[in-house]
Nucleic acid binder design. Sequence first.
DNA 1: ATTATCTATAGATCTATAGATAATGC
DNA 2: ATTATCTATAGATCTATAGATAATGC
Lengths: 235, 235
Amino acid sequence: MSQYALATATRPGRPRVVPRATSALAPRDEILQAAAELFVNRGFAATSTRDIAEKVGIRQASLYYHFEGKPGILAELLELSVRPSLEKVEAIELECSADVPEAALYRLALIDADTLATVPHNIGRLYRMPDVRSSEVFEGFQPALQELTAAYGRLGAGVVSGPVAATVGLNQLGALLIQAVEVVIRVRSRGDEVTRADARGIAATCLRICGASEERIVRAAGAIRGWDRGGGSCG
Amino acid sequence: MSQYALATATRPGRPRVVPRATSALAPRDEILQAAAELFVNRGFAATSTRDIAEKVGIRQASLYYHFEGKPGILAELLELSVRPSLEKVEAIELECSADVPEAALYRLALIDADTLATVPHNIGRLYRMPDVRSSEVFEGFQPALQELTAAYGRLGAGVVSGPVAATVGLNQLGALLIQAVEVVIRVRSRGDEVTRADARGIAATCLRICGASEERIVRAAGAIRGWDRGGGSCG
DNA sequence: ATTATCTATAGATCTATAGATAATGC
DNA sequence: ATTATCTATAGATCTATAGATAATGC
């Protein structure tokens, strides 16, 4: 045996009946990938555990070594597409919503849009699918999603100007803003890519929805750039 | 027996094990209603024929007297949500696209938005669901949908002004316009109603997407009013 | 006779478990 | 010993058909 272990290093465990392609992914991640693509393109309920296994190149029963069935796989995929937002929303609210509320909203929208734009196989769609929404797994995520909507609402409320406040109710504002961010999902569904520049455009749209002036928007975008470099404090 | 047949007139056929509620609907339509609600709220693949039958109050096997299974029911629902548009698109294009293209686009968008707004249980969502899109039934509707997108593209192309034409490709324009109309589906999914006024606003949005001036939009909306009263000719 | 249901059920999935097996790693 | 697979299969749906039955209508 050479001391230079190759990428194709053989793993422990009985070999697959269809030999593994030289995939850099761990088996668990291979399964997540395959499931993501099938769930998004054919539907969650329409995808059987056998479909997933076939795509990976293993036997149906072998899935259960890595996951507790289809619901377990779904749970992990849902987690992947919201964790980044949830992790950062609290920090963003604390950091700077008081003095520059529009910067905070811009930042949250940008992170969200970016996550949705880069997450594999457009799994942001899962949240929109009725078979997912009515699954037991989804119930566990509902509180987190509502909290996220509420955060958008609070941040938006700090930005809104008089005429906007008169038109759109505060409890609708959060939903409206998330809606705007989720354009990313729709664009990707059409097969188009969403660039970092697109994401900034979407974040700006969120501020416009709140009635922010173009000047405030430019300032908010500028504040972000400082963040990305320096990190943390709200100059 | 009285000569005054009641609405609850007994029908031929063996009685149901769960007696019919006094539904004005024909059994076939009862099934369509129940299926529409389940397909949209739980998903097509996630809904079994037994679920549908239960909701109607009949036995699972009895569905097959009225439909050729789940796909047959789906086909009829899909039909319901596009037939009005398809029926009228040709007439609209012939009537007046040459002299007042913006009126034609406005009219088509309005009819579409109105259909999507009033169709029962928001069945416009079906076209967006991956389990539906990958079903065999859906393939049959794809040509009609593409033709509809193409019609939006042609009508839009007659309206676009220079700066818009420079930005958005002509083959994308149709998709973009349909996208705008389908906001109706999204709004209804949120639980909100879509009024006739909302539909007019969406039709106007379509013209704005093409870069039409507010004046042209007002004129287009006015032309419609003439139509609704008089019918047919393009003054 | 016609219509609209019913009951019963075969056959096709689909999920999930039990237990065997073939690798690596120590 | 540990890990990751395999084979085999029980039990739970789910779809779709065959044939019986209970109404109305003529």
